[in-house]
Computed example of a mutant assay.
Amino acid sequence: MEHLEQEQLHHKEIATTILNQFGGHMALKLIGGKPAMGASDGNKNSVVSVGNEGDTVVDIKFEGTANEIEGVRPNVVRIIYCLGSDTYRMIFFRAVENTAVILKEFDDVYCDMLQSLFEDTTGLFLYFK
């Protein structure tokens, strides 16, 4: 039981770091963002990738009106910390009720790219310039 608690704490710490690198609470307020976080169990049945077992996953559902990607506006970005490569994967998708459509994916993202990739892809700003 103690090992499971330590692992959960580890994923929570990584998820908190991801959110801080994304821009923290101010960035979330600007886009109407609501984060959800967890650890990947390597579930291959998910429509939207959750990474490999042991990866940390953060979903940010946002209310801001994003730019369209192939005629569809994303409303969720999934950020996956890829433990093996020490990089991130960003997946933009549209989620409505129990359906999700993947619109754009980025692999091998470094922490200093999270904000600019989000802003360039959605047209939503994470901080005041």
Rank of each mutant, 00 (worst) to 15 (best):
E53G: 11
L28P: 01
E68K: 13
G38N: 03
N52D: 15
D59S: 06
G84I: 00
I91C: 03
A95E: 11
H11R: 01
T16V: 00
H3A: 11
H3G: 09
Y110T: 13
V50L: 10
I18Q: 03
G123H: 11
H3W: 07
V72Y: 03
N45W: 05
G123T: 06
A39M: 10
A100T: 09
I31T: 00
I79S: 05
M26Q: 13
A100K: 12
T17W: 14
G51S: 05
V77E: 01
L117D: 05
Q8G: 11
G33Q: 06
P35Q: 12
M37E: 13
T56E: 07
E13I: 00
Q21Y: 14
Q21E: 15
L28K: 08
R78Q: 05
F62A: 00
V96R: 13
S40H: 04
T16N: 14
V50R: 01
E70T: 11
N20F: 07
N67W: 10
E105T: 14
Y81Q: 10
D108F: 07
K29N: 15
G23N: 06
D86R: 15
G24I: 04
H11M: 06
D107P: 04
L9S: 12
Y88K: 04
G64M: 06
T16L: 11
A15Y: 01
Q21I: 03
E63G: 10
H10N: 15
G123N: 08
E105W: 01
G33H: 02
L28H: 07
R78Y: 02
F118C: 05
A39W: 01
Y88L: 08
Y110K: 15
L19T: 02
I14V: 11
S49H: 01
V58H: 02
K44Q: 11
A27K: 03
T99N: 14
S116Q: 15
K104D: 08
K34C: 09
D108H: 14
Y81F: 12
A100F: 01
M37R: 02
V101E: 12
D55H: 00
I80K: 02
I60A: 05
N52Y: 08
K12R: 15
I31Q: 03
P35I: 01
M37H: 10
C111L: 10
I31G: 02
T122Q: 05
T56Y: 00
R78M: 06
D120V: 09
G51D: 03
E119A: 09
R89D: 08
I80E: 03
D107L: 09
P74L: 11
V109C: 08
T65K: 11
V48T: 01
P35L: 07
I18T: 01
L9F: 02
F118Y: 13
I14M: 05
R73G: 00
H11F: 05
F128I: 12
N98E: 10
L117M: 15
T56R: 03
Q115E: 14
I31R: 04
D120A: 15
S116C: 14
V72C: 04
E53F: 10
N45K: 15
T16F: 08
K129V: 10
G23A: 12
A15H: 03
E7Q: 14
E2P: 04
N67M: 12
E70R: 13
G24M: 07
F125R: 15
Y110Q: 15
V101R: 13
H25I: 12
D108G: 07
I69G: 04
D112A: 09
A15P: 01
